[in-house]
Design a binder for these strands. Sequence first.
DNA 1: CAATCGTATAAGTATTCGCTTATATATTCG
DNA 2: CGAATATATAAGCGAATACTTATACGATTG
Lengths: 108, 108
Amino acid sequence: MTAAMQLTNVLKTLADPTRRAVFERIIREGEVAATGLVQGSKVSQPAVSQHLRALRDAGLVAERREGRHIHYRVAPKGLGPLIDWLGHYETFWAERFANLEKLLKESE
Amino acid sequence: MTAAMQLTNVLKTLADPTRRAVFERIIREGEVAATGLVQGSKVSQPAVSQHLRALRDAGLVAERREGRHIHYRVAPKGLGPLIDWLGHYETFWAERFANLEKLLKESE
DNA sequence: CAATCGTATAAGTATTCGCTTATATATTCG
DNA sequence: CGAATATATAAGCGAATACTTATACGATTG
């Protein structure tokens, strides 16, 4: 799998708002079982399960089985393709947009 | 339009490899007419035109008319929603993944 | 073992997407 | 004005997407 394909996967996976909401909840809660993610979600359990699979396939989350429960956590390396891509073009934006580092600081 | 919706637009727009390739060419070439982008593209002129519209609608490129030609250039602010989103969750990743700034430096 | 709980998969469907060909809308040139 | 150039829009189509309900699988419990 090329870097471009990985980036495409990450972008496609994060582009869906429902799936991104699941991802953000995992970020905030640290480690959550799928049940916990279904609670408070607008969509059904299978839909959440499908989103979790997509997130895992994209390398954005990892799972840990504990009895009947499967706990999901963020796999920060999954964002690597996105970070790399932004960094790769940073020099082109720097000329007219300061630079990404500065932006990251300002956005906090 | 909420911030989440803008982010969704940016992610969706960049998620298509053909469209992202158009965007990357605009980045590299600085300012290009649509004709130049059609040359060397795998897809037809209308397809390129549709991608350019999507990029403009997402705020990722700006255009400047000059006679019959329309020159496209990157609108760096268009990446704002993406940068902001990454920055917003930076603190959550920092614990286990150093921080985005460091990553950006390393990725050069 | 049987019932139950947590999660995944299967199958079907409506919507969205990216592409094509054909046509329309500027803008310039002779 | 009429022809040519640069770009956009229209219409249609096949593939992908995100959801649903129904069912299967895996692990625990009584």
